[in-house]
Protein backbone atom coordinates (compact mmCIF):
# COMPACT_ATOMS: atom_id res chain seq x y z
CA UNK A 1 0.00 0.00 0.00
CA UNK A 2 2.87 2.34 -0.70
CA UNK A 3 3.01 2.71 -4.45
CA UNK A 4 -0.67 3.26 -5.07
CA UNK A 5 -1.68 6.04 -2.72
CA UNK A 6 -5.07 6.71 -4.35
CA UNK A 7 -4.08 10.28 -5.00
CA UNK A 8 -6.85 11.92 -6.93
CA UNK A 9 -7.64 15.52 -7.81
CA UNK A 10 -10.81 17.03 -6.40
CA UNK A 11 -10.80 20.49 -8.00
CA UNK A 12 -12.42 19.36 -11.29
CA UNK A 13 -15.60 18.39 -9.41
CA UNK A 14 -15.78 21.81 -7.74
CA UNK A 15 -15.09 23.65 -10.99
CA UNK A 16 -17.85 21.70 -12.73
CA UNK A 17 -20.40 22.50 -10.06
CA UNK A 18 -19.57 26.21 -10.16
CA UNK A 19 -19.69 26.37 -13.97
CA UNK A 20 -22.95 24.41 -14.07
CA UNK A 21 -24.51 26.78 -11.56
CA UNK A 22 -23.52 29.85 -13.57
CA UNK A 23 -24.98 28.46 -16.78
CA UNK A 24 -28.23 27.73 -14.99
CA UNK A 25 -28.58 31.17 -13.42
CA UNK A 26 -27.69 33.01 -16.64
CA UNK A 27 -30.09 31.02 -18.83
CA UNK A 28 -32.99 31.31 -16.40
CA UNK A 29 -32.74 35.08 -16.01
CA UNK A 30 -32.35 36.12 -19.67
CA UNK A 31 -35.53 37.50 -21.31
CA UNK A 32 -37.47 34.91 -23.35
CA UNK A 33 -37.74 35.08 -27.13
CA UNK A 34 -40.87 36.82 -28.43
CA UNK A 35 -41.77 34.03 -30.84
CA UNK A 36 -40.82 30.89 -28.91
CA UNK A 37 -41.41 32.16 -25.37
CA UNK A 38 -39.74 30.20 -22.58
CA UNK A 39 -38.83 27.44 -25.04
CA UNK A 40 -35.95 29.63 -26.24
CA UNK A 41 -34.16 28.82 -22.95
CA UNK A 42 -33.43 25.35 -24.33
CA UNK A 43 -31.01 27.07 -26.72
CA UNK A 44 -28.62 27.84 -23.84
CA UNK A 45 -27.95 24.15 -23.29
CA UNK A 46 -28.54 22.77 -26.80
CA UNK A 47 -26.10 25.11 -28.56
CA UNK A 48 -23.24 24.75 -26.02
CA UNK A 49 -23.65 20.96 -26.06
CA UNK A 50 -23.27 21.00 -29.86
CA UNK A 51 -20.23 23.27 -29.68
CA UNK A 52 -18.57 21.11 -27.09
CA UNK A 53 -19.15 18.07 -29.28
CA UNK A 54 -17.29 19.87 -32.08
CA UNK A 55 -14.49 20.93 -29.72
CA UNK A 56 -14.17 17.48 -28.17
CA UNK A 57 -13.88 15.79 -31.56
CA UNK A 58 -11.39 18.47 -32.64
CA UNK A 59 -9.24 17.56 -29.62
CA UNK A 60 -9.62 13.88 -30.53
CA UNK A 61 -8.32 14.69 -34.01
CA UNK A 62 -5.37 16.65 -32.56
CA UNK A 63 -4.53 13.89 -30.07
CA UNK A 64 -4.77 11.27 -32.81
CA UNK A 65 -2.53 13.25 -35.18
CA UNK A 66 -0.01 13.89 -32.38
CA UNK A 67 0.03 10.16 -31.56
CA UNK A 68 0.70 9.21 -35.17
CA UNK A 69 3.54 11.74 -35.21
CA UNK A 70 5.14 11.23 -31.77
CA UNK A 71 4.04 7.63 -31.03
CA UNK A 72 3.53 8.70 -27.42
CA UNK A 73 0.57 6.98 -25.74
CA UNK A 74 -0.29 10.06 -23.72
CA UNK A 75 -1.70 11.58 -26.93
CA UNK A 76 -3.77 8.47 -27.50
CA UNK A 77 -5.21 8.79 -24.00
CA UNK A 78 -6.13 12.42 -24.63
CA UNK A 79 -7.80 11.52 -27.93
CA UNK A 80 -9.76 8.72 -26.27
CA UNK A 81 -10.84 10.82 -23.28
CA UNK A 82 -12.05 13.60 -25.55
CA UNK A 83 -13.94 11.20 -27.84
CA UNK A 84 -15.84 9.70 -24.92
CA UNK A 85 -16.87 13.13 -23.65
CA UNK A 86 -17.68 14.23 -27.22
CA UNK A 87 -20.03 11.28 -27.69
CA UNK A 88 -21.81 12.28 -24.48
CA UNK A 89 -22.19 15.86 -25.71
CA UNK A 90 -23.40 14.70 -29.14
CA UNK A 91 -26.01 12.48 -27.53
CA UNK A 92 -27.01 15.37 -25.30
CA UNK A 93 -27.32 17.67 -28.32
CA UNK A 94 -29.59 15.21 -30.12
CA UNK A 95 -31.85 14.58 -27.13
CA UNK A 96 -32.11 18.28 -26.23
CA UNK A 97 -32.79 19.02 -29.89
CA UNK A 98 -35.69 16.56 -29.80
CA UNK A 99 -37.09 18.14 -26.64
CA UNK A 100 -36.86 21.53 -28.36
CA UNK A 101 -38.20 20.33 -31.72
CA UNK A 102 -41.40 18.75 -30.40
CA UNK A 103 -42.96 21.98 -29.06
CA UNK A 104 -41.53 24.27 -31.79
CA UNK A 105 -41.43 22.35 -35.08
CA UNK A 106 -44.12 19.93 -33.97
CA UNK A 107 -42.14 16.67 -34.30
CA UNK A 108 -39.53 14.89 -32.19
CA UNK A 109 -37.43 13.99 -35.19
CA UNK A 110 -37.33 14.49 -38.95
CA UNK A 111 -34.83 13.43 -41.60
CA UNK A 112 -33.37 16.83 -42.28
CA UNK A 113 -29.69 17.19 -43.30
CA UNK A 114 -28.48 18.60 -39.96
CA UNK A 115 -30.26 15.97 -37.88
CA UNK A 116 -29.28 13.05 -40.09
CA UNK A 117 -25.61 14.08 -40.23
CA UNK A 118 -25.50 14.61 -36.46
CA UNK A 119 -26.89 11.12 -35.92
CA UNK A 120 -24.26 9.71 -38.29
CA UNK A 121 -21.52 11.56 -36.38
CA UNK A 122 -22.80 10.12 -33.10
CA UNK A 123 -22.62 6.56 -34.40
CA UNK A 124 -19.22 6.99 -36.08
CA UNK A 125 -17.68 8.15 -32.80
CA UNK A 126 -19.46 5.35 -30.99
CA UNK A 127 -17.67 3.15 -33.54
CA UNK A 128 -14.39 4.82 -32.54
CA UNK A 129 -15.02 3.78 -28.93
CA UNK A 130 -15.92 0.23 -30.05
CA UNK A 131 -12.81 0.03 -32.22
CA UNK A 132 -10.70 0.67 -29.13
CA UNK A 133 -11.98 -2.58 -27.63
CA UNK A 134 -10.71 -4.77 -30.46
CA UNK A 135 -7.27 -5.28 -28.98
CA UNK A 136 -5.47 -5.14 -25.65
CA UNK A 137 -2.24 -4.18 -27.37
CA UNK A 138 -1.85 -0.53 -26.41
CA UNK A 139 0.21 0.52 -29.43
CA UNK A 140 -1.96 -1.25 -31.95
CA UNK A 141 -5.11 0.11 -30.32
CA UNK A 142 -3.66 3.61 -30.39
CA UNK A 143 -2.69 3.36 -34.06
CA UNK A 144 -6.03 1.99 -35.25
CA UNK A 145 -8.08 4.52 -33.36
CA UNK A 146 -5.78 7.41 -34.28
CA UNK A 147 -6.43 6.82 -37.98
CA UNK A 148 -10.19 6.90 -37.40
CA UNK A 149 -9.80 9.83 -35.01
CA UNK A 150 -8.18 11.89 -37.77
CA UNK A 151 -10.55 10.84 -40.57
CA UNK A 152 -13.76 11.27 -38.58
CA UNK A 153 -13.20 15.00 -38.11
CA UNK A 154 -14.55 15.74 -41.63
CA UNK A 155 -18.00 15.24 -40.14
CA UNK A 156 -17.74 18.31 -37.94
CA UNK A 157 -17.76 20.91 -40.78
CA UNK A 158 -20.29 18.73 -42.59
CA UNK A 159 -22.66 18.89 -39.62
CA UNK A 160 -22.04 22.56 -38.95
CA UNK A 161 -22.45 23.84 -42.50
CA UNK A 162 -25.20 21.40 -43.49
CA UNK A 163 -27.77 24.07 -42.68
CA UNK A 164 -26.14 26.44 -45.17
CA UNK A 165 -25.08 23.99 -47.88
CA UNK A 166 -28.37 22.13 -48.12
CA UNK A 167 -32.00 22.96 -47.61
CA UNK A 168 -32.87 22.05 -44.09
CA UNK A 169 -35.60 22.55 -41.57
CA UNK A 170 -33.03 23.40 -38.92
CA UNK A 171 -32.26 27.11 -38.82
CA UNK A 172 -28.89 28.62 -39.79
CA UNK A 173 -26.22 29.42 -37.15
CA UNK A 174 -27.19 32.36 -34.94
CA UNK A 175 -23.89 33.28 -33.34
CA UNK A 176 -21.50 32.54 -36.19
CA UNK A 177 -23.75 34.20 -38.70
CA UNK A 178 -21.84 35.91 -41.56
CA UNK A 179 -24.04 38.97 -41.06
CA UNK A 180 -23.38 39.16 -37.32
CA UNK A 181 -25.30 37.54 -34.46
CA UNK A 182 -29.03 37.77 -35.21
CA UNK A 183 -29.94 37.95 -31.57
CA UNK A 184 -30.43 40.54 -28.84
CA UNK A 185 -27.27 41.47 -26.92
CA UNK A 186 -28.55 40.05 -23.62
CA UNK A 187 -29.11 36.70 -25.33
CA UNK A 188 -25.70 36.77 -27.01
CA UNK A 189 -24.04 37.38 -23.63
CA UNK A 190 -26.05 34.58 -22.00
CA UNK A 191 -25.17 32.18 -24.79
CA UNK A 192 -21.48 33.10 -24.45
CA UNK A 193 -21.66 32.48 -20.69
CA UNK A 194 -23.28 29.11 -21.37
CA UNK A 195 -20.68 28.14 -24.00
CA UNK A 196 -17.78 29.11 -21.73
CA UNK A 197 -19.41 27.34 -18.78
CA UNK A 198 -19.73 24.16 -20.83
CA UNK A 199 -16.12 24.55 -22.02
CA UNK A 200 -14.92 24.79 -18.40
CA UNK A 201 -16.93 21.66 -17.58
CA UNK A 202 -15.37 19.88 -20.56
CA UNK A 203 -11.84 20.79 -19.41
CA UNK A 204 -12.58 19.60 -15.86
CA UNK A 205 -14.04 16.32 -17.16
CA UNK A 206 -11.00 15.87 -19.42
CA UNK A 207 -8.64 16.05 -16.43
CA UNK A 208 -10.53 13.27 -14.68
CA UNK A 209 -11.06 11.20 -17.83
CA UNK A 210 -7.34 11.33 -18.69
CA UNK A 211 -6.53 10.31 -15.10
CA UNK A 212 -8.85 7.34 -15.66
CA UNK A 213 -7.18 6.47 -18.98
CA UNK A 214 -3.77 6.44 -17.30
CA UNK A 215 -5.07 4.06 -14.62
CA UNK A 216 -6.79 1.80 -17.17
CA UNK A 217 -3.61 1.56 -19.22
CA UNK A 218 -1.66 0.78 -16.05
CA UNK A 219 -4.10 -2.01 -15.22
CA UNK A 220 -3.75 -3.47 -18.72
CA UNK A 221 0.04 -3.31 -18.58
CA UNK A 222 0.25 -4.88 -15.14
CA UNK A 223 -2.13 -7.65 -16.20
CA UNK A 224 0.02 -8.34 -19.25
CA UNK A 225 3.37 -8.30 -17.48
CA UNK A 226 1.84 -10.06 -14.43
CA UNK A 227 5.16 -9.93 -12.57
CA UNK A 228 6.49 -7.18 -10.37
CA UNK A 229 4.66 -4.18 -9.00
CA UNK A 230 3.67 -1.82 -11.72
CA UNK A 231 1.32 0.49 -9.91
CA UNK A 232 2.58 4.01 -9.85
CA UNK A 233 4.62 3.36 -12.98
CA UNK A 234 1.57 3.26 -15.17
CA UNK A 235 2.32 6.66 -16.63
CA UNK A 236 5.30 5.37 -18.55
CA UNK A 237 4.81 3.94 -21.98
CA UNK A 238 4.75 0.13 -21.89
CA UNK A 239 7.50 -1.72 -23.65
CA UNK A 240 5.77 -4.17 -25.95
CA UNK A 241 8.43 -4.60 -28.61
CA UNK A 242 7.44 -7.02 -31.29
CA UNK A 243 4.14 -7.77 -29.58
CA UNK A 244 1.03 -8.27 -31.63
Amino acid sequence: MTANEHRTTVWPWIVMAVAGFHVFVASMTVPPDALQGQLSRIMYVHVPAAWLAYLAFGITMLGSAMYLWKKDLKWDRRAHASAEIGVMFTGMTIVLGMVWAKPTWGVWWTWDARLTLTAIMFFVYLGYLALRRTTDNLDMRAKRSAILGVLAIVQVPLVHFSVIWWRSLHQAPTLLNPEGPSMDTSMVITLLIAVSGFTVMYVAMMFKRIELSRLEDAVLVSEQTSSGPIAGHGITSPDLTGGS
Binding site: W13, M16, G20, F24, G37, Q38, L39, R41, I42, V45, H46, A49, I85, M88, G91, M92, V95, L96, V99, W100, K102, P103, M201, M205, K208
Partner: peptide
Protein backbone atom coordinates in the same frame (compact mmCIF):
# COMPACT_ATOMS: atom_id res chain seq x y z
CA UNK B 1 -43.50 25.70 -22.01
CA UNK B 2 -41.79 25.61 -18.63
CA UNK B 3 -42.32 21.84 -18.57
CA UNK B 4 -40.28 21.46 -21.76
CA UNK B 5 -37.57 23.74 -20.35
CA UNK B 6 -37.48 21.73 -17.10
CA UNK B 7 -37.19 18.50 -19.09
CA UNK B 8 -34.30 19.90 -21.15
CA UNK B 9 -32.35 21.18 -18.15
CA UNK B 10 -33.07 17.99 -16.25
CA UNK B 11 -31.60 15.94 -19.09
CA UNK B 12 -28.56 18.23 -19.35
CA UNK B 13 -27.57 18.13 -15.71
CA UNK B 14 -28.45 14.46 -15.37
CA UNK B 15 -26.15 13.58 -18.29
CA UNK B 16 -23.28 15.70 -16.95
CA UNK B 17 -23.58 14.30 -13.43
CA UNK B 18 -24.01 10.72 -14.64
CA UNK B 19 -20.95 10.86 -16.89
CA UNK B 20 -18.86 12.52 -14.20
Amino acid sequence: QWNWVALAYGITYFALIAHT
